[in-house]
Amino acid sequence: MMQAIYDRLKDRFQLGALDVRSRKGLAFVDLRREFLRPVLTELRDVEGFTHLILLTAVDWIEDERFQLTYLLNNRQKNLDLGLRLRLDRNLAIGETIHDLWPTAATYQRELREMFGIAFPGSPRVDEEFILEGWTDMPPYRRDFDTLAYSQQTHADREGRETSDPREFMKQILYPKD
């Protein structure tokens, strides 16, 4: 069923290969940026993907890219389709879809705060979402080192010991090796 939908859209929107994961009703597909809005509109209005499950980002720091994932759900046919979109990491400007799904505005606000991806035109996108008074770089970016930040901000209590879980369990379970 997913294949049929994919075949209908593939050529018109120059979609990437269909990537079926773990179960039959879940697939991901790469998408070029200029087709984001047409594809989303078509999926919502024609193919019955009425529900935006989530909008999230992945930081591919080695490729200098942010990947936006739009996860859509077709309730009637029980299909989940993820659209993957790659952005330039240094530019990091996405396209707002709050007019297609109003919930997207909240996700975009979160991405703006946690990844520093801008969504011009999205309502209240520049207001603080979870963090208050944050002055450092967006904390979900992979070049933000949360351990280093934590140690430079809060002092550890003396006497605190940490052990690597793998080494610790190895010593307990296989002391001879």
Binding site: Y149, D156, R157
Partner: peptide, 16 residues
């Protein structure tokens, strides 16, 4: 609250 616990490396929770 004592030493950060499992949030010992979190950027947004206090330790002591």
């Amino acid at each position: 609250t004592i030493n950060g616990g499992m949030y010992w490396d979190s950027y947004n929770t206090i330790k002591k």
